[in-house]
């Protein structure tokens, strides 16, 4: 039950963030989508032994967070919530790769470096995905998908799923509450009720889908999904996208922390 209200709260939280009106929010969804994908591709392509190459990528989330006025604490919490899974898989790296290397005069097992690299990558990629949603919202993302030529009916279906998730989460929540009240002390649903509990819900969901279809037909739906013109792509959007993509390319191929380090330590001869 608690995870249901949590999921509901989570979705509403992101929806609310997406409804803000800042510089970043106003940008064309495609510009943000493209920047996000470029960022992800660049981060993920960084070599697994490399840590310093990943660090300049932190500029992206930090700057967009500030520009979009996203609340840091709750967002970071959401990012960290995903990390345990990655830790679960990555923690085995130090076990399997005990090759010792010297790092800053300290002997480190190479496995730890790859682990750290995965950990940072996870943080960065998760941040990028959440930023995309929190600054764009599901509606505008859907319109971006349409502009990209994704079949409209798929977009409509995606939109419907998003629309009805909160309705069904609430419904499931009510059912679980009703179940718990009459089955105190049970941790989950007893096997005898497995089929009927979820099955009833399916039947009701089918009925609801039929009503929704009826409502769509009443307003002229004929299998074609017609949408508005959508936002126009202007120079600001292009500039935003171009600047980030360029930044990612530079950062990906030029070792900025290395150069910076050399500059301060006088390593360049």
């Amino acid at each position: 039950m608690s995870n249901i209200s949590e999921a509901l709260y989570n979705m509403r939280f992101m929806d609310d963030l997406a409804r803000r009106n800042t510089l970043v929010h106003r940008l064309h969804p495609l510009a943000k989508l493209a920047s996000t994908l470029a960022f992800l591709a660049a981060v993920v392509s960084v070599e697994r032994y490399e840590i310093s190459g990943l660090l300049p990528f932190f500029f992206y989330p930090v700057i967009v967070f500030a520009l979009a006025e996203l609340p840091i604490k709750p967002m970071v919490k959401r990012i960290l919530m995903v990390e345990p899974f990655i830790i679960g898989i990555g923690i085995l790296n130090p076990l399997f790769d005990q090759h010792i290397v010297m790092l800053g005069g300290v002997a480190v097992s190479r496995g730890w470096i790859t682990f750290l690299s995965i950990f940072i990558k996870c943080g960065l990629t998760v941040a990028a995905a959440l930023i995309l949603l929190a600054t764009t919202g599901m509606d505008r993302l859907a319109s971006a998908l349409r502009m990209l030529g994704i079949p409209k009916l798929f977009v409509l279906q995606l939109t419907l799923t998003y629309r009805y998730i909160s309705v069904l989460l609430e419904e499931v929540g009510r059912i679980l509450n009703a179940y718990a009240l009459r089955a105190p002390g049970q941790k989950g649903i007893h096997w005898k009720s497995w089929g009927s509990l979820a099955g009833q819900l399916i039947l009701r969901t089918f009925e609801r889908a039929q009503s929704v279809y009826g409502a769509m037909c009443l307003r002229g739906f004929d299998g074609e999904y017609r949408t508005g013109d959508g936002q126009r792509f202007c120079t600001t959007d292009l500039a935003y996208m171009a600047v980030w993509v360029m930044f990612f390319i530079i950062v990906r191929f030029v070792d900025i922390p290395g150069l910076l380090g050399l500059v301060v330590t006088g390593g360049i001869k």
Binding site: A198, Y213, M216
Partner: peptide
């Protein structure tokens, strides 16, 4: 030409999403 499928898929997707939160005790 089964346009009826679209709302069905949409709402059923929401159902599966929500139903994944139900714990069935073993």
């Amino acid at each position: 030409l089964d346009e009826k499928k679209i709302p069905m898929m949409g709402v059923m997707g929401a159902f599966v999403f929500a139903a994944q939160m139900i714990n069935f005790s073993i």
